[in-house]
Design a protein around this nucleic acid. Structure first.
Length: 280
DNA sequence: CATATGTCCTGAGAGC
DNA sequence: TGCTCTCAGGACATAT
């Protein structure tokens, strides 16, 4: 999962590492396929040990730890990655750690499936490798006109476009369904069919859903994977409107039941009554 | 160029 | 009970 709300919660949770000095970098040997780390550990160590953490930022669904050496450590959790302070869900899936001076002590990267990565980049490369062509405006900052300008001529289904990080950065499969339900937009409607007021509704829903999800520290689904930096579960799953609720009554109309469809090999949940393809 | 599909990985849960 | 199978969806590579 980790999408914008979860990654932002992790980012906030590890803020205590700011101003700490990196004392050691460790990669854990596991009976699992090893995590993608670049550069190799030796070079990683030479370039980071002794440096100080300047800031912790979020870039879409990535956590960026800026160092005083003009390097940055980029954590990309993908499906099951977590960035934690001092404590992890278990030792089996611990992949990487930074030993730090100061009160924070230790930063862990934990990843059950290991699809994520930890990379050390020159700060200058962040702007190019994750520039506007790769990563669109952050979902918390995108405007209705930016959405319309970028997608207004696209024939893709709106749900698919919401997942495109080069259009908007931060939305994933879970929040795409939640956002479209609040915006009362059918997930299969083609972008080029949306009206001016629908773009405005979409933008408002993006902001409202993500901000609310951040307030509740993200969504921990039934598999329990997602935790915040202190290894605690999030709470937004108790406020989901549609995600993983196929067959349940819609919380808005209380009449129709939530439906699950597949778009581009991924589940989408919506209410056929509140999210009719053509406006009522 | 825009859009669609395949790939990586582990563990939970279903079905027999 | 223990096996096999399917599924979950991030980002990127490759195909159409």
């Amino acid at each position: 999962m980790p999408e914008l709300p979860e990654v932002e919660t992790m980012r906030r949770g590890i803020l205590p590492i700011v101003a700490s000095r990196i004392k050691e970098v460790r990669k854990f040997r596991l009976p699992l396929k090893s995590l993608s780390i670049s550069p190799a550990l030796g070079v990683f160590r030479r370039r980071t040990v002794g440096s100080t953490v300047l800031a912790v930022e979020r870039l879409g669904k990535r956590v960026v730890v800026r160092l005083d050496t003009s390097d940055a450590i980029v954590f990309e959790p993908r499906m099951t990655g977590l960035v934690l302070l001092n404590e992890a869900p278990d030792n089996t899936h611990l992949r990487f750690s930074l030993e730090l001076s100061g009160p924070a002590q230790r930063l862990f990267y934990w990843d059950r499936r290991g699809l994520g990565s930890v990379q050390l980049w020159r700060s200058a490369d962040l702007a190019t490798k994750l520039g506007p062509n790769v990563l669109g405006p952050d979902a918390l900052a995108v405007s209705a006109s930016q959405l319309r300008d970028c997608l207004g001529n696209s024939r893709r289904e709106i749900k698919i476009s919401l997942l495109d990080q080069s259009v908007i950065a931060g939305i994933g499969n879970l929040y795409a369904s939640e956002i479209l339900h609040l915006a009362r937009l059918n997930p299969q409607i083609r972008c080029c069919r949306l009206t001016q007021s629908e773009w405005a509704r979409l933008q408002a829903a993006i902001l409202e859903v993500l901000a609310e999800a951040i307030r509740y520290e993200g969504s921990t689904l039934s598999d329990g994977t997602y935790r915040n930096a202190l290894n605690q579960a999030g709470n937004y799953q108790n406020h989901h409107r549609v995600y993983a609720k196929a067959g349940e009554l819609c919380k808005s109309c209380h009449k129709e039941r939530i439906v699950r469809i597949i778009q581009s090999q991924r589940s989408t949940f919506f209410c056929p009554r509140c999210q009719k393809p053509t406006p009522a």
